[in-house]
Structure formats: structure tokens, C-alpha cells
Nucleic acid binder design. Structure first.
Length: 254
DNA sequence: ATGGCTTGAGTGTCAAGA
């Protein structure tokens, strides 16, 4: 089973890239973030023609998450239960017996912003819910745009980013709390090239300088981690015309 | 120097991203 995540930064703009990537990589599951679409505008027909069913939790202009799958998505859940949030950042579904939880974690903007407090509260609510979800579903994958670089090796310039949003101790502690629920970072189960990132700023030729961060993650429950054969970041779509600023991350599970 | 691009809104130029 190939399972992937990609922040597409507008599915309206990126649909051709997504269709090309699905055809080239043939993942069984692709989790999308930042669709920036209302459900009524979601391209269900185009994806169905490519062989993918989709479930979406969308809103106008901002956020929006989806799960694309070659087989049926069952037991679909939207948002974090019992957490009041107008922003559409979570969708969950069971695909081929695997519980898939797709998240678009708040960015946080800056440490002195209200959005940073919202991010930390959001992450605490996610962890509390995930604990229950893991108890119900031993085969679980939590994947998406976490907006957290877990470690300095996930940051192109750790000195510049020290104590900045995406890299603060509190965010990294929240990330480790998710791992402590019994999840493993699929990417770090394997030897990886140094300076591996999943996001590069559009400005200042970030991609050409490889001035990036690794903030998109696939976290696997213990049974799935034991069956994981590979995990990598595909930089190819970031090189296309009008790319997303994120690259897809994909894991393969036996 | 708080910028730099990109997107969506909407037709001015701003908010938001990370």
C-alpha cells in the first residue's frame, strides 16, 4: 500500500500536477491539504476519471483537506470531535482497513501571534482525540502538513530559525507528544539524504538554494511502522511550472 | 531592512502562508 501526503496550495491551480503525479506514482491513498475549495467546487469527476474516489472537508479561500483513494473510503470523519473550529483542517477515513487521518496543522504565523496559541491548543486537541482513535484503530496513519520541523536536521538554517514559529520548543514538544501516543515518523525509519526538506519558500529562490524545511510528515502506528518498506520525498513536482511550495511525501507499507 | 512569491478575494490591494 502506497500512501502519500501533499499540500497543494490550491487544488484549483494544482489539479493538473496532482493528476500527473497520481498517474506516475499510483499511490493507493493521497492526502491533500490547502485545497482552498468549497465541497461544491471539488473536482470529484476529474479524480474519478483518474481512478480515485475522494472525500473532502473544504471551505472557501483557506484550508481544506481531502483523502483520495483507489478503494472506498469508509467511516468518514470531519474535524476534531468536540473541538470548536471553523477552519477545515481534518478529515479521516478508513481505506482498506487502515485508518487515515489527514491534517493541516495551523501555521501559527509568529510566536507573539494569537494564531500561535491557537496552533498549540489545536495540537493538544488533536493529541487527545488521536489517543482515542488509535485505541479504536490499531492500523492508523496520521499524515499531512504539520507545520513543525521536528529537529534541527529538518531545517536548512537552524540558527536563523531558532525559536521561530515551526521550530519552537513548544511546537516540537507537541509533535513528540503525538509520537508518544505510539506513532513513528515513517521518513526517519530509513536512512535519508542530508538536507531533506518538504517545503521551500517561493521567495529568494528557496528551492534552487534548497533553503527548505521538513514539515510534511507521515506518522505510522506501531503495527504499520513494522510493515513500512520505504518512505521518501518526491522533489520532482516542485520543479514544475507554477508548483506548490510543498513536495509530496510517500510511504510504502507491505 | 519584516521585504522577497503565490493564491484568492475581487477590480483596490490586502490577508495569509511558512
Amino acid at each position: 500500500m502506497k500512501i502519500a501526503t501533499w499540500n497543494v496550495n490550491s487544488l484549483r491551480v494544482r489539479l493538473p500536477h496532482v493528476l500527473d503525479w497520481l498517474a506516475a506514482q499510483e499511490p493507493d491513498v493521497l492526502a491533500l491539504q490547502e485545497t482552498k475549495l468549497e465541497d461544491a467546487a471539488f473536482p470529484f469527476a476529474e479524480l474519478a476519471a483518474a481512478g480515485y474516489r475522494a472525500v473532502h472537508n473544504g471551505q472557501k479561500t483557506y484550508n481544506g483537506v481531502a483523502i483520495l483513494a483507489r478503494s472506498e473510503a469508509e467511516d468518514v470523519g470531519r474535524d476534531i470531535p468536540d473541538f470548536a473550529d471553523a477552519q477545515k483542517r481534518v478529515i479521516a477515513a478508513t481505506v482498506a482497513g487502515v485508518r487515515v487521518v489527514c491534517v493541516y496543522v495551523p501555521n501559527g504565523q509568529s510566536v507573539d501571534s494569537d494564531k500561535y496559541g491557537y496552533k498549540l491548543h489545536w495540537l493538544a486537541a488533536l493529541a487527545a482525540w488521536l489517543q482515542e482513535e488509535l485505541a479504536r484503530h490499531p492500523d492508523l496513519v496520521l499524515l499531512g502538513d504539520f507545520n513543525i520541523a521536528p529537529d534541527d536536521r529538518d531545517v536548512h538554517d537552524p540558527a536563523a530559525w531558532k525559536d521561530q514559529v515551526l521550530c519552537t520548543d513548544a511546537e516540537r514538544a507537541a509533535y513528540r507528544k503525538l509520537l508518544a501516543l505510539g506513532l513513528a515518523d515513517a521518513f526517519r525509519l530509513f536512512d535519508q539524504p542530508e538536507k531533506s526538506y518538504s517545503w521551500w519558500d517561493y521567495r529568494m529562490m528557496g528551492f534552487r538554494r534548497n533553503a527548505g524545511l521538513r514539515i510534511d510528515h507521515i506518522l505510522l502506528s506501531t503495527p504499520l511502522a513494522g510493515r513500512c518498506q520505504a518512505c521518501g520525498i518526491d522533489r520532482a513536482p516542485r520543479k514544475l511550472e507554477r508548483p506548490s511550495d510543498h513536495a509530496p511525501v510517500m510511504a510504502e507499507i507491505a
